[in-house]
């Protein structure tokens, strides 16, 4: 019943990070909280939920043990595994093809779509 604590050694799962997380404030679901994402990570679940982290690291500021969620590393792992949002794929393709994240733009044209991960 008690998990093997080496499963998630960096996060103590105390949950004190929930309320400072801007994403949790909107979603109000544990999987979007820093603790929730740490649990998903420890369970080896690769999911688009990790893209919801804003990488602001406010959770690290309040974490009693200073745990860093490492969002960039997790996303790099997801991209390597081919798990990406459509917006992310489009953004990267646009950067590669057009040198900007928006796609083809005429001289002086403002982007109509703002793509983000």
């Amino acid at each position: 019943m008690l998990i093997d604590l080496t499963e998630n050694p960096a996060c103590t799962e105390c949950g004190l990070c929930r309320e400072v997380c801007p994403v949790f404030q909107i979603q109000r679901q544990e999987e979007y909280s820093p603790r929730g994402r740490a649990i998903l990570g420890s369970a080896g679940i690769q999911t688009l939920v990790f893209y919801q982290c804003t990488l602001c690291r406010t959770c690290r500021v309040v974490c009693p043990v200073g745990h860093d969620p490492g969002g960039e590393i997790i996303r790099a792992g997801l991209i390597s595994a081919g798990i990406e949002t459509e917006a992310n794929q489009m953004m990267i393709a646009n950067i590669r093809q057009y040198g900007n994240p928006f796609g083809p733009l005429a001289e002086g044209e403002l982007p109509k779509t703002l793509t983000c991960c």
Partner: peptide, 20 residues
């Protein structure tokens, strides 16, 4: 309501780390 795998994993335990 959610029955997604992510949800079920995140709610499988509390700060006790006793899991079900």
């Amino acid at each position: 309501v959610s029955t997604r795998a992510e949800t079920k994993a995140a709610y499988s335990r509390d700060a006790s780390r006793i899991q079900g």
